[in-house]
Amino acid sequence: MQLLIFYILAFGAVISALLMVTSKKPVSSAMSLIATMVFLAGLYVLLDAHLIAALQLIVYAGAIMVLFLFVIMLLNVDEKEGRMAGNTILLQFGAILAIGLVFIMMVSLVKSGGTLLVFGEGADQFGTTKAVGKLLFTEYLLPFEIASVLLLAAIVGAVILAKRRIDDPDQKERIIPGHKG
């Protein structure tokens, strides 16, 4: 039963990932990427990582991809724009890199004898919010904090890029109090 669900989810993920790359319309591409993420969330559920699955749906499928779609729709991106057709060297490099990564993963999978997860103490607690939270705030506190600082820097950068400049004459009339631009 579990194997069947795994195959359905895995094939769904691969097929929608292929659709994302091959489809010509930007909105179809974005929707295929969302489908891939939903299937991946299903795979996380199979691996007992419920928290990660929920976060995958909330953060990636729910928030980030909505922004993608928003931008695509707002700019009304045409299907002719933004193709990488001419840049063959870059494409070749990317393909080699991807194949190399898959190879490395396969080798490590075979070497480990098919078992990637080693359950220690509290295996029944695996993947619960409490277990993940405890790990994040004790053993992996430093990487967690570094990631937070990185995100904070990104937020500050976004605010600086997006804010209206008071000394900019073009935008001066838009910041008069009471006047709605």
Binding site: V38, H50, L51, I58, A61, T128, T129
Partner: peptide
């Protein structure tokens, strides 16, 4: 579910589409 409340948020965020 252990992540009950997050489950609700996950699916309501998909409703946006």
């Amino acid at each position: 579910l252990d992540v009950g409340l997050l489950f609700i948020f996950a699916f309501s965020s998909l409703a946006t589409y």
